[in-house]
Simulated assay, not measured.
Amino acid sequence: MSEVESTEPVITATAVPHAHRTNCLPAYFGSKYLQVEVMINQHMRKLCADYEGGIWEFYELSNGGFYMHPKGQEKMHVCVPDNYCDVTMSPDAAGITACLFAINHLTWITRSTKHIDLYHALRDYAMDHEESSLIMRAID
């Protein structure tokens, strides 16, 4: 049997240096940047009952996407009762999940093509994430 070669480029994530974080959210979300940051935190609190806030890491994706995740925790318990999801995942996967929920919410508010594209860019990245099955289960 021969292996099928993928023609799709691998999507990579690059950490945003601390000095560039101030301009990062406005660059991706425009005037809605404060609203989306609050929404991401609200979704994380809703998804993870034990989440108490803290510092977040920011990532830019090679396909034009963006996400952030909480720093410093080993594993996070994520519960989405509406779709019977009750899993444990890394802070990276939990952050991607919270960002997908928040950006999806934002797209319904703004109907902005830019925000829709950001959602799809992050979802495409999540599809190849090592915890993709957990992320997809949570957002299903």
Rank of each mutant, 00 (worst) to 15 (best):
E3P: 01
E3R: 09
V4Y: 13
S6W: 04
T7R: 08
E8G: 02
I11L: 00
T12Y: 09
T14A: 10
A19G: 03
H20W: 11
R21L: 07
T22V: 09
T22I: 09
N23V: 07
P26S: 08
A27T: 13
Y28T: 07
G30N: 02
L34A: 08
Q35N: 06
I40K: 04
N41D: 13
Q42N: 15
Q42M: 07
R45G: 00
K46P: 00
E52Q: 14
E52S: 09
G54E: 03
G54S: 05
W56R: 10
E60R: 15
S62C: 06
S62L: 04
M68K: 15
M68E: 01
P70D: 07
K71S: 08
K75T: 06
M76L: 15
H77A: 09
H77Y: 13
C79E: 14
N83G: 04
T88L: 05
I96W: 01
C99L: 02
L100V: 01
I109F: 13
T110W: 13
R111L: 12
S112E: 12
S112K: 03
T113L: 12
T113G: 03
K114W: 05
D117Y: 08
Y119L: 12
R123T: 06
Y125F: 15
A126G: 06
D128F: 14
H129T: 03
E130C: 04
S132K: 11
I135E: 04
R137S: 10
R137Q: 15
A138T: 02
D140F: 11
D140R: 11
